[in-house]
């Protein structure tokens, strides 16, 4: 009886702890960004492309447009790059690969997902960035490099989730499509994909959430300069990189502006994940 109550209490506390931490984070972000919100407002802040530290080191003119744009564009490039490849891997693993290949390729995909992001960053900085530069010109540390490496980073995650979604297609449904005279391609297109659609969209959105918040690899690759990207191959900055690079020496108002950026990133990721959950949890009609 005592034991019962003890466990009940323990599991309740654990559950509430999660909510408490979530709210604590929101409160702290909001609290520290209050002076920047007061000074710059919302629309002015997100449309202002300047980030100038005042002469005394404390004031200044701070706007979030460039890092917000950098975050969105690098994630967008990542998605454009990752989605077709991840879908190809998922289809291969569920419908095409012979049994003896399924396990090794599946494990390789999961191993890729376990590589720490700094390793992707170094690889991109020393090898992949210069390679892209030799193909497309521009700078080796650029929106394009950051986006493509981000894409490579989320591919395993997206592929694994999509594979799991496709694996839920009942085998009788697949068999009955074959028994109507469908080819393998038609079965994938007409049965497996529509059936797994929600799970696949969910996997894309969750991957997007990861790409939006990724700091380390992007810090290596996006260039880290506060400049409007006039082409795909030019260097710019993203929200996490801005914060990581400037945290040490920031004055009061700049610090507050960075908290404001963090709050915006938090809200963006929060909404992406919420949409993903909404898709995952929604029942098929």
């Amino acid at each position: 009886m005592l034991f019962n109550r003890f466990f009940r209490g323990l599991s309740h506390t654990s559950a509430w702890l999660v909510l408490t931490i979530l709210f604590a984070i929101i409160i702290v972000l909001f609290h520290y960004s209050k002076s920047a919100i007061g000074d710059f407002g919302f629309f002015h802040f997100i449309t202002n492309s300047k980030w100038i530290v005042g002469n005394d080191g404390n004031g200044g003119n701070f706007g979030g447009l460039i890092p917000i744009l950098g975050t969105f564009l690098s994630s967008l490039i990542a998605m454009v790059f990752a989605i077709p490849i991840a879908m190809g891997i998922a289809i291969f693993l569920t419908e095409i690969a012979p049994e003896f290949l399924k396990a090794p390729v599946g494990i390789a995909v999961e191993l890729l997902a376990a590589i720490p992001s700094i390793i992707y960053g170094m690889w991109g900085l020393f090898y992949f960035g210069p390679l892209l530069q030799s193909w497309f010109g521009g700078q080796s540390n650029s929106l394009l490099t950051a986006g493509v490496v981000l894409g490579i980073m989320v591919i395993p995650f997206m592929a694994a989730l999509s594979r799991d979604a496709m694996n839920t297609t009942p085998s009788v449904l697949v068999e009955s499509a074959y028994s109507m005279g469908a080819t393998r391609y038609e079965v994938i297109k007409d049965i497996v994909f529509p059936f797994a659609k929600k799970g696949i969209i969910g996997s894309v959105i969750l991957s997007l959430g990861r790409a939006l918040g990724e700091t380390m690899a992007v810090a290596f690759l996006i260039g880290g300069v506060f400049r409007f990207p006039d082409s795909l191959t030019s260097a710019t900055i993203s929200i996490p990189v801005l914060i990581a690079n400037n945290f040490g020496e920031a004055g009061n108002l700049q610090l507050s502006a960075m908290f404001y950026m963090a709050l915006i990133l938090f809200i963006i990721s929060f909404f992406t994940i919420t949409i993903a959950k909404f898709y995952f949890l929604r029942k098929t009609d």
Partner: peptide
């Protein structure tokens, strides 16, 4: 089949 298998 054993179970009805309408396509989605």
């Amino acid at each position: 089949f054993q179970k009805p298998t309408p396509f989605p």
